[in-house]
Nucleic acid binder design. Structure first.
Length: 484
RNA sequence: GGGCCGCUAGCUCAACCGGUAGAGCAGCUGACUCUUAAUCAGCCGGUUCUGGGUUCGAGUCCCAGGCGGCUCACCA
């Protein structure tokens, strides 16, 4: 006994044979519509019912047949419009061919625009062509596709049936376009650096490993863009950026996908104060470009992104929100026992930097709803940042938060090759595995100007702009386990 | 990796205490020349995620597994 799906597919294969029997190719090479649906609507505004001889192409989304007259809804990437097919106008043969058009099929139509009695703008079809016959039915028109797993695995169905989902990815594209345009206007040059690297540096994360057969050596997928970009600063490109995919072989969650998109940019002769200004200007510029406003909505709350954002010293923030002054605890042991005193569960393998990061995520992050820069981190949390001029235990690093989500990480770049080598060595001795990159240190030995650098997690930025709680909702094809 | 929850027709969802697995949409047939979640009449359609077990009888209870969601851990 055939299932419904099999029967539907059989019926459509039969339809295909009937179409071919009429000498019609159900998968023709092309079609050149005179207008998009959006353009057609504009045209009607201007010309009214003089809008004749226009052609459109798209997917049939619904079909309402009343004997000798039928209404179909046609959708292209710009919008949706109703089509009317009349027996009188098309004649028996053409009208009967309408039988072969199913919901989901892609067709081209020609005709004139008019308004129905109900006021709906409609194309009265005088001729039409099958552009692609479909073999499977679309998800239900009213509820769309709700099954989360299916939405991710078959994103195309999600995009066809859920308008909201489609809007998110349009927004994502616009955000990246606006980001590029902002940086370009600021005199930054876009570059591309290797994804395959013999050492994965620039961050602390487990990399993906792959193998190059001809070279017979293992290579790593990059976990950050940082080191090659700074080599370009050494090379004399004073403002560079890269928007690219990085890969981290770690857990998957609502905020983590194994591959994600980062912006990193570096500006010679700048420090982290300059980068703070750059970040708040860039984010509010992007908001203006993509939403026409510098205010966004997050869980019903309105958040204003207009600069200047709050600047909050990390030490003060931790003191205020959890009562610990980390300057009073200059070694791991004392900080650990203080945290245990507070009733926190403390991983004995964690170093001072990681413990402070833990305090940040537990006590501070949830408080950072409004756009905030957290600044001046202990030297242990980042081996690539330059020390404060007046306090060698701190580095000039900041993270930007919106809605408690970290969206940017930046610092005054460490350009002292001797200090850099020592810092890599300290990290290597500790539990935090960040590989020292000899090539990179060598580059620093040739001299890198004072530089400010920035990293922005684009997926998370899109989450904030789109009001989404899960990173999978802003990545077209999020990583899922292979089925069977 | 741990905890909790979910998986039933192509899609969206029902099915009480374990008692013949249903509806809407989609599809098919018929009626209908301004409908728009079209309407009306009729019809078809099931490996209830998989594999075991308990039982006279399992979508439902038990065990193991798969995939997904949330969450904790880890991280950005």
């Amino acid at each position: 006994m055939a299932s419904r799906l099999e029967r539907i597919t059989e019926q459509r294969l039969d339809s295909l044979s009937r179409i071919r029997a009429r000498g019609i190719d159900p998968y023709p090479q092309g079609y050149h519509p005179s207008h998009t649906i959006r353009e057609a609507r504009v045209l009607f505004e201007r010309q009214g019912e003089n809008a004749q001889d226009i052609s459109l192409a798209g997917r049939i989304m619904s079909k309402r047949s009343m004997g000798k007259m039928s209404f179909l809804d046609l959708r292209d990437s710009s919008g949706k419009i109703q089509l009317s097919f009349r027996y009188n106008l098309l004649g028996q043969e053409r009208y009967e061919f309408l039988q072969e058009i199913d919901i989901g099929d892609i067709i081209g139509v020609e005709g004139r625009l008019f308004r129905t009695k109900a006021g709906e703008l409609t194309l009265e079809v005088s001729d039409f062509a099958m552009l692609c016959k479909t073999l499977r039915p679309l998800p239900e028109k009213w509820h769309g596709l709700a099954d989360v797993e299916k939405r991710y695995r078959q994103r195309y169905l999600d995009l066809i049936s859920n308008e909201e989902s489609k809007k998110i990815f349009i927004l994502r594209s616009k955000i990246i376009t606006a980001m590029r345009s902002f940086l370009d206007k600021q005199g930054f040059m876009e570059v591309e650096t290797p994804v395959l690297q013999s050492q994965a540096g620039g961050a602390v994360a487990r990399p993906f490993i792959t193998h190059h057969h001809a070279l017979d050596e293992d290579l790593y997928l990059r976990i950050a863009l940082e080191l090659p970009l700074k080599k370009l600063i050494v090379g004399g490109f004073d403002r560079v950026y890269e928007i690219g995919r990085v890969f981290r072989n770690e857990g998957i969650s609502v905020q983590h996908n194994p591959e994600f998109t980062m912006l990193e940019c570096y500006q010679a002769y700048a420090d982290y104060n300059d980068i703070m200004n750059l970040v708040e200007e860039m984010i509010s510029y992007i908001a203006g470009e993509v939403m026409g406003d510098t205010k966004i909505t997050w869980r019903g709350k309105t958040i204003d992104l207009t600069p200047p954002w709050r600047r909050l010293y990390l030490r003060e923030a931790i003191k205020e929100y959890c009562g610990i002054d980390f300057e009073d605890y200059s070694d791991v042991a004392s900080l650990r026992s203080r945290m245990i005193e507070m009733g926190l569960e403390v991983d004995p393998d964690k170093g001072r930097g990681k413990l402070i990061n833990e305090l940040i995520s537990i006590f501070v992050e949830p408080k950072l709803t409004l756009p905030t820069f957290l600044l001046d981190y202990p030297v242990e949390v980042c081996s690539l940042a330059k020390r404060k001029r007046d306090n060698a235990r701190l580095v000039e690093k900041f993270e930007a938060y919106i809605n408690g989500i970290e969206i940017a990480n930046a610092y005054t770049e460490l350009n002292d090759p001797v200090d850099q080598r020592e810092r890599f060595q300290q990290v290597a001795m500790g539990e935090e595995i960040e590989s020292g990159d000899e090539d990179f240190i060598q580059a620093l030995e040739y001299g890198m100007p004072p530089t400010g650098g920035l990293g922005i997690g684009i997926d998370r930025l899109v989450m904030i702009f789109a009001g989404q709680q899960s990173i999978r909702e802003v990545i077209l094809f999020p990583q899922l386990k292979t089925k069977e």
